[in-house]
């Protein structure tokens, strides 16, 4: 399970709308425990792939080092990126380039500039040789933000996507 509050959830989706028709990307900071990954903060990252930013993303390692150093007690628990005019499913490239076991990879489909489905995939396995992506439910904590959408509804929507 990926736990995220409504404000951060909306912010990462809005990021994909802003960068459309290019991919956006960012880092999820928080804590992980037996119940899953808990996002406390999202950090926008610059997409360093300027050659084909509409269908590629890449976070500069130097930027990641900086984000990790400035995390102040939080850990990197996942990453997010957008798929402009493409479904919210991981691609062969996403899988080949995923190396953070135990982290959540969140993908938002942005169709014609509007954020649609957001899915999360947990990278599991113990090595490059046996890694795989597993569908991960997203629980949106709405109490903190006081928004009118229930977490159950969002999870159900996600399940149908």
């Amino acid at each position: 399970m990926l736990h995220i509050d409504y404000a951060n959830y909306e912010a990462l989706r809005a990021h994909g709308e802003e960068t459309y028709p290019h991919e956006c990307c960012g880092v999820l900071l928080g804590k992980s425990d037996a119940k899953g990954n808990h996002v406390k903060q999202i950090v926008r990252a610059g997409n360093t792939r300027t050659d084909s930013a509409h269908n590629r993303y890449n976070i500069a390692p130097q930027e990641l080092v900086k984000i990790q150093r400035q995390a102040r007690g939080l850990d990197i628990v996942g990453f997010y990126h957008s798929h402009p005019d493409h479904p919210a499913q991981w691609s062969a490239t996403d899988f080949a380039e995923a190396h953070w076991m135990g982290c959540s990879y969140v993908i938002t489909a942005v169709a014609k500039g509007k954020a649609e489905v957001t899915n999360s995939f947990l990278l599991t396995g113990s090595s490059e040789e046996d890694k795989r992506f597993v569908d991960q439910a997203i629980e949106i904590d709405v109490k903190a933000a006081g928004a009118g959408v229930s977490a159950e509804e969002e999870t159900e929507l996600k399940g149908q996507a």
Partner: peptide, 9 residues
């Protein structure tokens, strides 16, 4: 720091 990249293919 492992790398972070991907794309929609």
């Amino acid at each position: 720091i492992p790398s972070i990249a991907g794309g929609a293919d």
